[in-house]
């Protein structure tokens, strides 16, 4: 099947966007056992995580994310492709969006995964998959999905904005500023991008730059969070010009 030979390689894009493409799972720091009453599973994870992990594992089956972009799993994807062969791409997208809007995140991830496998050359399922993954705290995988969406489709400011939001979640202030800056490259009138850049500069204690982007956001008809103005003013009086 031709579609399964498509290999999505957007590592250069990862580097260009200053996003981490090599990240793996949840970090573990080798925490020692706490008390005599410590309970553990054989694997050292909780059954609550096992249960959810099993559901997520099944939902995500068929795609791989380790390289920072989405790849078809050569062992799993062909069989899933056969399963969805008689379904339409649009139908899968619609179903997944309904599930996501109903709070059924895991089900939505499963459906969007199948949509990607159905038509890996199309971007919307990657983007939707990225949206769904973030609802389960899967920031790295979400970023990989957005990266793949950017790789197979025309670039868009909104997709770049989602990428920037994930970088914001990671706490990388410089990366955040750069990523929201890339939103402005495509849409210079994106007020919220200016607002987010202003907040990042505030956290970096670069208050003058924070004011600049605050004013830009407001000039474009957007608003910064109302509490932010007061907080910024407490650090640096608002420039008059």
């Amino acid at each position: 099947m031709k579609r399964f030979r498509i290999l999505l390689t957007w590592a250069p894009l990862c580097a260009a966007l200053l996003i981490g493409c090599e990240r793996g799972g949840t970090p573990e720091d080798g925490k020692p056992s706490a008390t005599a009453a410590t309970a553990s599973t054989a694997s050292g994870t909780s059954p609550i995580e096992d249960y959810r992990k099993e559901r997520m594992k099944e939902a995500m089956r068929g795609l791989r994310y380790e390289k920072g972009y989405v790849e078809l799993d050569p062992e799993q994807a062909p069989a899933i492709g056969e399963e969805v062969r008689n379904e339409t791409y649009e139908g899968l997208l619609s179903k997944g969006r309904t599930e996501l809007d109903s709070g059924l995140s895991v089900e939505a991830i499963g459906t969007f995964t199948r949509a990607v496998i159905h038509s890996p050359q199309l971007a919307p399922a990657y983007e939707a998959l990225g949206d769904a993954l973030i609802t389960k705290g899967r920031v790295n995988e979400s970023q990989a999905a957005y990266t793949s969406a950017m790789g197979v489709a025309d670039d868009s400011a909104e997709l770049r904005f989602k990428v920037a939001q994930n970088i914001q979640r990671s706490g990388d202030l410089d990366g955040q500023i750069a990523a929201y800056g890339r939103v402005l490259e495509l849409d210079p009138n994106h007020a919220e991008a200016h607002s987010r850049i202003a907040i990042a500069y505030y956290y970096k204690e670069e208050y003058a730059a924070a004011w600049t982007h605050t004013h830009e956001a407001e000039r474009l008809g957007g608003v910064v969070p109302p509490q932010f103005r007061g907080m910024l003013s407490a650090k640096l009086a608002e420039p008059t010009n």
């Binding site: 949840t26 573990e28 925490k31 706490a34 008390t35 009453a37 309970a39 553990s40 994870t45 909780s46």
Partner: peptide
């Protein structure tokens, strides 16, 4: 918080 009584990779 490390005395969470659990033996997991991440505290809870």
């Amino acid at each position: 918080c490390n005395n969470d009584g659990l033996n997991r990779g991440q505290q809870f």
